[in-house]
């Protein structure tokens, strides 16, 4: 199968400090791709280029064969949706209003929302189990509930590619696993940053390891996340193990 998302030789520097150095990654359609690496390795910077908060130049990022530097932000937002940590908004919107904003890329400036948009939004809220909260204020929700609402907004966007920029980091272990499996079940193309290696091993089809702005390893997570990799890149000693169901896990011994 051909790559659906392709980042090719992406370099990025802020005032001569190099953040990304010739990074190339790919994701096939429907593939769940993980990006791991120590703090400051450039993971989030890489994702920000894909979701266009950072500027993209020609021939750097392709989606479905199209150079995204030639796409309007609106057209990009129909293809790519992002889940990040957005816990505090300056204004008190209701859950329904927040999720409805996911429909914006599909609407002209003057168009108002119709029955169909409303149905898409309700479906999305139902999928994440937040339909009963649609008239609540977003600010009154717990962290996990907020993140589910933001997932509903991404669903309402009807994009094929999900970018996860550490949306679950601050959540408790239940929500971390629950949200990831909700996303996995969508069978969309996912590119996600991970800090938790057990989540990486469970959910990813393919993983890239970033260190100091470069891709240092890639492949299936069981093969890439080896004891040697943990020692060399992540500076911890670790042991690989398996759950009784045969899923790969990792146990950390200590920081080196």
């Amino acid at each position: 199968m051909e790559e659906y998302v392709k980042v090719s030789n992406l370099s990025y520097a802020i005032s001569s400090k190099e953040i990304l150095n010739n990074v190339s990654i790919q994701a096939k359609k429907g593939q769940f791709v993980g990006i791991v690496g120590p703090n400051g390795s450039g993971k989030t910077t890489l994702l920000r280029h894909i979701y266009r908060v950072l500027p993209v130049e020609e021939n750097q990022i392709y989606i479905d064969g199209r150079d995204i530097s030639g796409l309007s932000l609106r057209d990009s937002a129909k293809l790519v949706t992002v889940m990040r940590q957005e816990m505090d908004f300056a204004f008190d919107y209701k859950v329904l209003e927040i999720v409805m904003l996911g429909r914006s890329p599909h609407k002209k400036v003057y168009q108002s929302k119709n029955q169909e948009d409303f149905k898409i939004v309700l479906d999305a809220l139902n999928y994440v189990g937040m339909a009963d909260y649609k008239d609540e204020f977003f600010s009154n929700l717990s962290g996990g509930e907020k993140q589910r609402v933001l997932m509903a907004r991404s669903l309402a966007q009807r994009a094929e590619i999900f970018i996860l920029d550490e949306p679950t980091n601050h959540l408790d272990v239940y929500y971390q696993w629950h949200l990831m499996s909700l996303i996995k079940d969508l069978k969309k193309t996912v590119i996600s940053v991970f800090h938790d290696f057990n989540l990486t091993l469970e959910f990813c089809d393919y993983v890239y390891v970033l260190n100091e702005g470069s891709v240092v390893a890639q492949g299936e997570p069981e093969k890439v996340l080896s004891v040697g990799m943990f020692e060399e890149i992540f500076r911890v000693s670790a042991e690989n193990s398996k759950t009784t169901a045969g899923h790969s896990r990792v146990m950390i011994n200590q920081a080196l």
Binding site: R74, R84, A90, L101, S104, Y110, S112, K113
Partner: peptide, 21 residues
């Protein structure tokens, strides 16, 4: 164009990811 004000009021990067210039 009130929808666009809702978008930009969520902050610069969120508005960009939802397709706004």
């Amino acid at each position: 164009i009130s929808d666009r004000f809702n978008l930009i009021s969520l902050g610069e990067s969120t508005a960009v990811t939802l397709g706004m210039n």
